[in-house]
Design a binder for these strands. Structure first.
Lengths: 243, 243
DNA sequence: CAGCTTATTGAGCAAGCGATAAATAAAAAT
DNA sequence: ATTTTTATTTATCGCTTGCTCAATAAGCTG
């Protein structure tokens, strides 16, 4: 079978790390020098998020400084080591973006289940399906940092397990207190979660063209998922109850 | 609201890049020196795949050589530059793993649609949901290489678009020649695809514990997806036909 | 203006990087 | 056994990297 043109032969690399979406000029063109301490620190962190998202943690401090319009040794006045700067990037990026109200939305039974799920996932996607969040999260995952494990454990315990409980209630299946949420069940929740996250991966990691507005896609995914869920869920709970 | 223990405060990094699954000893303990040219080249490529999967392309040639039980300059006897070695890694990892028969499986209408999808995705997952494939693919995506874009374009044109056509046929909807596959429709295919890929991301990138056998999970995902699909698909084609 | 504080810079070190060239030694050829 | 070939190593170059420290200059206080 002859190969057509769109195959993978002749693989070559491209030295173009995906540029950030908004071409914000390197932060300061004729940067006003001698800023107050707090202001400078803030700018460094913001610039570092942008920079590390683009280049990864192996990005060099000299180039980061160049983008910030400052010299490299100044970075070390504000952060004793590069690792300390990276830690601050994590703080600003992950810890601050978690919304405890999400858990309440999911459990709010005054709303139908699809509305709750759509509300949560649209807001969640708006929070984390961004250039900086997605790329830094993946860079840190590949580097083997434990933040990813911790963050996803949070997602599992605070979101997915609760979703499973609400589905049980919605479809008239045994309460989790009577029959604990099983692994296969939880994997269904991970599947929907992965489908939504993969939107961001396609766009921000692989640079693929993706519909600009994620919301209708998320709603469609949830519709399909919920329409197909009860059959499988009933089968799974039957299996588990039988043991 | 007081924070519980499993939150994200006190983020710290961990200097442990996720180790490969099978602790294959560094390739050669008391390595028989002076290998024939082909054999040595083969070992270098295999070792490089393992090494770059773990450390990324910024992994140093000296450490790669150390794992291979050879000295660093010897690498440059076989590959003129580090980039040339990386290109060979791509060839071995991506080009060789594409199975043209997959496209035939999907279009084989002598089998029911769920059987076809499960057969393809289980085989596809067995091929690419591996430590080396997933990690190198993500490293190269983050680095901005064009392989990812090319590979996923292949997936879209050779797999997902065809799946959409088969769904149309399955549910008695207009043929793609009469009404072309729409964007929203294709996004549903990406959703299922993403749900399955995300299994590998969770495990090999983030180091999360995931059920060992992916097959039953993939089957469940497809069952839920197919059960929920016809309603949404009918609505989408109605919308498109109305324009 | 003088004097003090401190944000910022210029110069540079030690270690690590990809890559090179000549020297060595193991296998093959004569 | 001697020569030829070549897989492999030793030593090193030029450059980059994270990081340091003394010098500079901008702003505040009197």
């Amino acid at each position: 079978m002859p190969r057509s043109k769109d195959d993978l032969s002749g693989l070559r690399r491209k030295a173009a790390p995906m540029p950030p979406p908004e071409g914000m000029p390197p932060c300061e063109p004729g940067a006003a020098r001698r800023l107050p301490k707090d202001e400078r620190e803030k700018r460094i962190i913001e610039g570092a998020i942008q920079f590390f998202a683009e280049r990864g943690f192996e990005g060099q401090t000299r180039e980061l400084a160049k983008r910030l319009g400052i010299t490299q040794p100044l970075l070390y006045r504000y952060f004793p080591t590069k690792d300390d700067l990276i830690d601050r990037v994590y703080q600003d990026l992950y810890v601050k973006r978690w919304q405890p109200v999400w858990e309440e939305w999911i459990l709010d039974r005054s709303q139908p289940i699809d509305r709750r799920m759509k509300r949560f996932y649209k807001d969640y996607a708006a929070s984390i399906l961004t250039y900086e969040w997605m790329r830094i999260f993946l860079y840190s995952g590949l580097a083997g940092f434990d933040i990813n494990n911790r963050y996803l454990t949070l997602i599992r315990d605070r979101v997915l397990v609760k979703l499973c409980g609400e589905w049980r209630h919605e479809f008239g299946l045994p309460d989790p207190t009577a029959l604990p949420i099983g692994e296969a069940e939880l994997e269904l929740a991970w599947a929907l979660h992965g489908a939504i996250i993969y939107l961001g991966i396609r766009h921000f990691i692989y640079g693929l063209k993706v519909p600009r507005n994620f919301d209708p896609l998320i709603e469609a995914d949830i519709d399909v998922f919920l329409a197909g869920l009860p059959g499988k869920l009933a089968a799974l709970t039957r299996e588990m109850a039988a043991e």
